[in-house]
Design a binder for these strands. Structure first.
Ligand code: FES
Ligand code: FES
Lengths: 135, 135
DNA sequence: CTAAATCCGACTAAATTAGTAAGGTATTAA
DNA sequence: TTAATACCTTACTAATTTAGTCGGATTTAG
């Protein structure tokens, strides 16, 4: 049930952007060196977050990334959902026509609801109060 | 955040044992064919659950596995914890002396607590009421 | 003794994840 | 207008993890 390195980097980058909010765009290079994340890898991650709509990009000199919405409006749930695909731990797809009440799915469904609710209620601004991640 | 196939098999096997409770031990072969799980793989999984203390085994003819405690005392949380190693999604280890309040860990810690609480409150007997998993 | 079962460890193959590399495109400062 | 900056995109590789197999040893009932 570990979150992927990719997602952890994504969360850290988002926190970094939140910290930088109202201070113009932050470039990949800045974020990467600041957080100790491989630049080319972070580039992929940021592109995905942009396609997910929670960050915006500015190309060219002095460009970079910035949050689409304020830190207090951006939840960690959204970040994880974009990067991790879906929060559902189920392997069996949603229809499952033959067995709509399968007990395994019941368990997995509950896990999902629990995770979703937790993450959707953590906003980036809360996280600015606590410390910065150190490798 | 998907749960591994291994763990899903484990949950299903445990539900199977719960259904079989008060009916003597159930063999790997029985469970495997009944649930559509590869036998040799299930063997590994059951051994791990036994080492985790939630099932007991009986060797030899007419042997097999049985729950150590009743279905109403056996939580899914324990099953997942044994098979998935830990429920913590954090990658960074517990001490993290340099940065005890790292924001990333704060997030991951909350996810963990949420999952743990959810799973620890689902007991096998509840799951007997709903349907059986069909491939 | 023998058949049925768990037990154990090593092994392989497939899939996923982490990370790299290279070249293109838009933007802007000078 | 040009050069530098930084995003954009795709393809590739390497490492790790996961899923599953295999062979043999041990235990036990009949
Ligand atoms: S999780 Fe350890 S420093 Fe952030
Ligand atoms: S039958 Fe689909 S999850 Fe069980």
């Amino acid at each position: 049930m570990k979150v992927s390195q990719r997602t952890e980097y994504g969360i850290r980058a988002m926190i970094s952007l939140a910290r930088h909010y109202d201070n113009g765009p932050a470039s990949i290079k800045e974020i990467a060196t600041g957080e100790g994340i491989p630049g080319a890898f972070l580039e992929q991650i940021m592109a995905e977050l942009r396609r997910g709509g929670i960050v915006e990009s500015q190309r060219g000199v002095n460009g970079g990334y910035m949050l689409s919405n304020s830190p207090s409006e951006t939840s960690v749930g959204t970040v994880v959902e974009i990067l991790e695909g879906s929060l559902s731990p189920a392997r069996c797809e949603s229809d499952c026509s033959k067995m709509p009440d399968c007990s395994t799915r019941t368990v997995l469904k509950r896990i999902e609801e629990s995770i979703t609710e937790t993450l959707d209620n953590i906003y980036l601004d809360e996280l600015l109060k606590v410390g910065v991640h150190e490798q």
